[in-house]
């Protein structure tokens, strides 16, 4: 048996910076956000619309080069209301959604906001799968997914 009275706790930290230069597909998608456009691209083999745009199609493993500008309206496919504070996430309650643009074969993750509530718990009921959302744009856009602050109901 271990004699735990000798146990000592070691605390340590990693703080490593990383840098990468993204290629053309991600560039065009992120550059589109600067101009308040949500761009996708279409696989030449399966005709699947990819939003966000990707360099290649996972299913067919072919390069995607055909561009498509979506309306910017997305549909909630799934969501989760968060009631506790997580490092790097907004103050609770906040809603993380899996949203899909038009008839895209891919969906993506973003924040959902602008749904009114009195008690946070109401958000579970008021957020609905299939709900149509539109982007709320940041004033200063730099070509980052956060150029969209969050998505909000179309009729809000």
């Amino acid at each position: 048996m271990q004699d735990i009275s000798y146990n000592k706790r070691f605390e340590y930290n990693w703080d490593v910076p990383f840098k990468v230069t993204l290629g053309e597909s991600y560039f065009r998608f992120l550059d589109g956000l600067k101009n308040k456009k949500i761009l996708g691209n279409i696989c030449p083999k399966c005709n699947g619309l990819h939003v966000p745009a990707r360099p290649f199609c996972d299913k067919c493993l072919v390069e995607i080069t055909k561009w498509y500008e979506t309306s910017g309206i997305v549909t909630i496919e799934s969501f989760s209301v968060t009631y506790v504070k997580f490092l790097g996430l907004p103050d609770p309650p906040h809603i993380t959604g899996i949203v899909r643009a038009e008839n895209a074969v891919t969906s993506f993750l973003h924040q959902i906001g602008g749904i009114p509530y009195d008690e946070p718990k109401e958000l579970d009921e008021k957020t609905k799968i299939g709900m149509k959302l539109k982007p709320v744009w940041a004033e200063k856009r730099i070509g980052d997914i956060q150029d969209i602050l969050y998505f909000t109901p179309v009729d809000a």
Binding site: D3, N7, K8, R9, F10, V16, F18, T21, E24
Partner: peptide
Amino acid sequence: SNNVIKKEWRFNFDFSVASGETYG
């Protein structure tokens, strides 16, 4: 190509580990 975009980020993790008796 000129059509590229640079991204920077960090791994910033705190860890805590027990030594156990031998190393302790």
